[in-house]
Design a protein around this nucleic acid. Structure first.
Lengths: 220, 220
DNA sequence: TCAAGAATACTAAACGGTTAGTATGTTACC
DNA sequence: GGTAACATACTAACCGTTTAGTATTCTTGA
């Protein structure tokens, strides 16, 4: 049963408001984004926002849900039908793409940091997301271990945490300093390191890292 | 010539206010910290803050300077008179210690993220700090390459960026989820990976990773 | 030495602006 | 006619900053 045209319009408005809120929260944070700002950007008044959302936090929680879902769908899609080794690289690539050209790349990091100590509900949502992501990566690594692609004597959970750390940290540095922090190379090097480290002993020699000659020693 | 007692008292008050501000900014961010809150925590009135600092941002810049200096001193001290290989580990240890038991561990990350797009002057200060840190790590790696401790075919700058990413990302995850993210292990694993990756080919076999047997494959 | 004036470190209150949220009114669509 | 999707006008609270004032210490000139 299709919703009435008017109700459909309301749903579109609600979604539009959520998108604009995501944009504002990404850049100015929750505390630094006023309802008036969001309303102005959407071309409506504050009253319209309160029609659709109970309060400011309700709007934030809608934004967080949207971003968490989008992220998890993207990661899931990147890993379908490929082996764990390729999947690790694929997840890294998705994160690079999202950070460089995605919509609202900074939302999650911005809100994650801001919510620590100040918003339990948002912290919980984003902590859940990170836990699921780390578990997902851990399972990938374990799967690779089972298939003999990765060595067995490494704690998959710690390796997953390390992967997540590198991606997260590289993104922050990139947002902070896009001129100097080459995101693709940084994450790429990390993944090479990890793959090299995870490789079973018999294969460690086969991984011939294809680095460009920038690594040559240069005087500073 | 010692400052007059009254002037010395003023200097102590100014420093105390800065410390309290650092604490508040770490937890609530710049935008989320009111002057009234800092004043209350210090047991003075808002006017006293304006006596010592021109405005709120002046107070923030004092806080940023304090933290940047403290961080850089700590890193410098950790690397004195030791070889590049040990120094890499030492820097990682300093970061772990600071995150777990240091004073105001979250200040830099909190303000770094918040300042992107909203405060050019703070962004510049913190970007400068991060650039200096990456350059410092890059120089460590290059020094190791010159001494034959590390392989030559890896771009030291990218490796430094990768190191920084991992430390930064691990800290954020730890602040967000201290129950689940084992900071020492996560950063420790990263450093092992890096050392393994940086090892010259002739020595790659000597690095026998001492991992505990938690890495055994476990069903989920 | 002493007193007047200056300097320092504050306090209490006020100011002007911003913000989240609420109550009520309006309009176009069903 | 009823209602969803708004707009407008308003309130209370918060916020950064300023102002007028106070207490104490320091300095300087007589």
């Amino acid at each position: 049963m299709l919703p009435q045209a008017r109700v459909a319009k309301g749903q579109r408005s609600r979604l539009e408001l959520t998108k604009i809120a995501i944009d504002c929260f990404s850049r100015f944070g929750y505390r630094g984004t006023s309802i008036e700002r969001i309303a102005r950007a959407a071309g409506v008044t504050k009253g319209a926002i309160y029609y659709h959302f109970r309060d400011k936090e309700d709007l934030l929680l809608a934004a967080v849900s949207d971003r968490v879902k989008a992220f998890e769908n993207r990661v899931q899609a990147a890993c379908e039908d490929i082996d764990p080794s390729r999947a690790l690289r694929s997840v890294a690539e998705v994160c690079v793409k999202n950070a460089c050209w995605g919509d609202h790349p900074r939302f999650t990091i911005r809100l994650m940091v801001e919510a620590i100590d100040t918003n339990d509900r948002v912290s919980e949502q984003l902590r859940g997301m990170m836990r699921r992501f780390r578990a997902f990566m851990r399972n990938l690594i374990r799967s690779g271990q089972r298939q003999g692609l990765f060595r067995h004597d490494i704690d998959a959970e710690t390796a997953a945490a390390s992967f997540t750390s590198s991606v997260l940290g590289a993104e922050i540095q990139f947002y902070q300093d896009p001129e100097r922090l080459r995101l693709e190379e940084t994450i790429g090097l990390y993944v090479d390191q990890l793959m090299n480290y995870l490789a079973p002993p018999a294969r460690a020699e086969e991984e011939n890292p294809s680095q460009d000659s920038k690594g040559a020693v240069i005087d500073d």
